[in-house]
Amino acid sequence: MTVLVLGATGATGRLLVEQLLNRGHQVRVIVRSRDRLPEAVINHPDVTIVEASLLELSHEELGQHVTGCEGVACCLGHNLTFKGLFGHPMRLVTEATRRICQAIEQSKPEKRVKYVLMNTAGNQNRDLDETATFANRFVVGLLRWTLPPHVDNEQASDVLRQEIGKNNPSLSWAVVRPDSLVDRAETSAYDIHPSPTRDPIFNAGTTNRINVAHFMADLITNDAIWGKWVGQMPVIYSHEAK
C-alpha cells in the first residue's frame, strides 16, 4: 500500500511515517524542507519525498502526488508561535484537506481512497448530539473569535462531513480526535470512543502522540478497523488519562 502523509515533519506526522514503514508500506511525503525529516526517513528506500509548499502546488501537481495512493493521512497543524497561530495560511488544514480531496476526486481512483485527518477532541462532531456544558460552549465560542487554529480544525472536518460526505465514490474518511497531546517513547494501551467522554477544556485527558500515530496507521491499513470508524470522528485517550 502507498500512503501520502501530510505534516510528516511534525511531532505526530514523523511517528506516523515510522509506523507505516515498520508495517512494510510505501510512504510519500510533501514537506517544505527534506532536512527536517529524520535521516532514517530521508534514506529509506520506501519513502518518496516531494519538497514543496503544499498550498502552492497546482491541481495538476497534486493530482500526480495522490495518484496511486490508497490512503492519505493529514497531520498538519499550526506552530505554537505568534506567526504560527495568527499568521497565514490561517486555514492551512482546511485548504490542504479540500485541495487534496479535490485532487483525489479528479484522479478517479479505481478504489476509494482513505483520508484520515488528525483533529482535536475540542472540535465537536456536529453529526452527533454531543453534549457540552454552558461553560464549554462559552469558551469554544471565544476560541472561534481569538484562536484561528480552532476554526481551522472545525472547518477542516466540515470539508469531509459536508463537502465530501459519506457516499463519495472516490474517497472515504475518518477524523481522529485526540485530547491533550503528550510525548511518549512507546505505544501504550488506549481507548477509542465515538464522542468525548471527558470535557476537553475543563477535564481534559491526555493522548500519547505515538498512540495517535498507531491508531491512524491502523485505520489506513486495517480494513476491519476502518469499517468500524469510517465516516466518523473517533476520540482517542491513552489509558493513563483515566
Rank of each mutant, 00 (worst) to 15 (best):
M216W: 06
H59K: 13
G87T: 04
E70G: 15
S58R: 08
E186L: 13
V66K: 01
L55D: 04
P196C: 15
N43W: 04
R137A: 14
V151H: 08
S157N: 08
E39R: 13
V93N: 04
E56C: 10
D129W: 09
L147N: 07
L128W: 09
F138I: 14
R91E: 13
Y115L: 10
K111V: 15
F138D: 08
V5G: 01
L142E: 10
G205N: 04
N203D: 14
S107A: 15
H88C: 09
H214K: 12
W226L: 04
A156S: 15
T120N: 07
A213F: 01
H44N: 06
T221C: 15
I104R: 08
M1A: 06
N211A: 06
L54I: 13
H239A: 05
I225V: 13
V176N: 00
I201P: 00
R23F: 02
G122L: 05
A121S: 12
G227A: 07
V159E: 13
E163R: 15
T207P: 05
L20I: 06
A103M: 00
T133M: 00
V230L: 09
V230Y: 06
N222S: 05
G24A: 05
V5A: 02
M90W: 10
R28M: 02
T9V: 07
V116C: 06
S58L: 06
R144G: 09
P148I: 05
E186T: 15
G63Y: 02
A185N: 10
S238V: 00
E61A: 14
I30N: 12
R126L: 13
N211H: 07
V212F: 01
K228C: 00
V31C: 10
H214Q: 11
A241Y: 00
M1W: 01
I30D: 12
P234V: 00
L128H: 10
A52H: 14
Q64S: 15
T12F: 00
V31E: 08
V182S: 07
R137E: 14
L15V: 03
I220A: 01
K114N: 07
A121T: 01
G71Q: 02
